[in-house]
Design a protein around this nucleic acid. Sequence first.
DNA 1: CAAACAGTTTAGCCTTGGCTAACAATTATC
DNA 2: GATAATTGTTAGCCAAGGCTAAACTGTTTG
Lengths: 159, 159
Amino acid sequence: MSDHEQRHLSSLRGQSGDALPPVEQHAQQYETVRNAHETELIEDYVELIGDLIRHRGEARAADIANRMAVSQATVSKMIRRLNELGLVTSKPYRSLFLTEEGQKMAETSRARHDVVLHFLRALGVDDSTARIDAEGMEHHVSDETLSIMQRFTEQQRNP
Amino acid sequence: MSDHEQRHLSSLRGQSGDALPPVEQHAQQYETVRNAHETELIEDYVELIGDLIRHRGEARAADIANRMAVSQATVSKMIRRLNELGLVTSKPYRSLFLTEEGQKMAETSRARHDVVLHFLRALGVDDSTARIDAEGMEHHVSDETLSIMQRFTEQQRNP
DNA sequence: CAAACAGTTTAGCCTTGGCTAACAATTATC
DNA sequence: GATAATTGTTAGCCAAGGCTAAACTGTTTG
């Protein structure tokens, strides 16, 4: 690897803030985030489809497009992918269903989402802000943090 | 808009969890997340470049590649983009500098990052997990939530 | 000082996830 | 039941962010 950085340990200057983590750890942080990004959208679609089915009895492409603020063509393409991934089943021009696996993913996602959302509210964040933040944060919260959030929320409720 | 959904208010089934938010709000959540994604990577690069400069006196493409766990070619391409965006200045085969604007972005990102990281630690999350989560979460935390996190962390420190 | 090595860039490829426009199917309405 | 409106699909475009391989530059060292 012959790390160029080694030659610059030198003179400690502007030491505000934490030190840099070791290279391997730092690299792993970024990799984790990149991996999360890959599954994120998939999970969002599956979660939304699950929510639509649960709340309205069915999930149609047009509803997804409206709620995601995305074109119908994009949704159509995405559904093909979800199909290939074995997460949904669909017949052309018909509404969607989640496979076993899709349902599992939808539930997990939804559970995560709820924990984060309720945690933010318990922290004192305004509802509409909490919703937006939760949507973005949910895919980046580890199981460990998630369970701490859950405990915190419960304590808040039963003081 | 002629919302198809309207025709399915019907029979409330499986009412676990919160109701769906109104379409406009829901759409805005997803849009916010999509927008965050666009700037996220840019901010990560700029933040890392700032950190490298601060801690080692200079930022070189190879160091960035190592720390991001990404190929040098990818970094090179990204640097060109950062250049076009007026965030860094660079001469071929030389190390990088942040422009005024780049510095501002680096500082803001770093501040956000620190608030989230310290908050997670204050919550009781293990250090290495907190680092990973903070890296993913920082771009999805609103100003409102951020300041609540900061207050929480301070209270934790001065009980 | 020439050769070897480390670092950087370029070229060219791939996948994702957006978009619009044109077309096809289904559903609603007269 | 024919036609209009809505919904869904396909084709083809684009930018972003990865990658590898090859070329080039700068630095170190025998």
